[in-house]
Nucleic acid binder design. Sequence first.
DNA 1: GACATGACGATTT
DNA 2: GAAATCGCCATGT
Length: 113
Amino acid sequence: MKKDHDLFFSSVYQVVELIPRGRVTSYGAIGKYLGMKSSARMVGWAMHAAHAHPHVPAHRVVNSQGLLTGKHHFSSPTEMEERLNTEGVQIKDGIKIVDFNTVFWEPSVELSL
DNA sequence: GACATGACGATTT
DNA sequence: GAAATCGCCATGT
């Protein structure tokens, strides 16, 4: 049972928790904020482990295209889109975020880093 | 320790 | 514009 790399997951969770309601961000944006601009996979992996952290709004994290690529990892494949829709985020075809550019939330900018 | 995989991203063909 | 390719680093086998 590790510990050190858990710090990475914790960092990801902290950022994700800071995502305002009705906003979304991308794996790459989080990775970039953490200093790993290309390790977006690790962020995705962190979200995979987010199952142990129910307070983490993983549904607000999508890929750079605004696609809900991880929807199949939720309790229900529709939970992610429904949840985003409830927060005011419109979803197209249940897979793509409408006005992604508008609802996009970049931690390195919003957090005034 | 090596090999394969993954909720991605950017670049090239 | 879509498909293929490389890079990225941690996890599981």
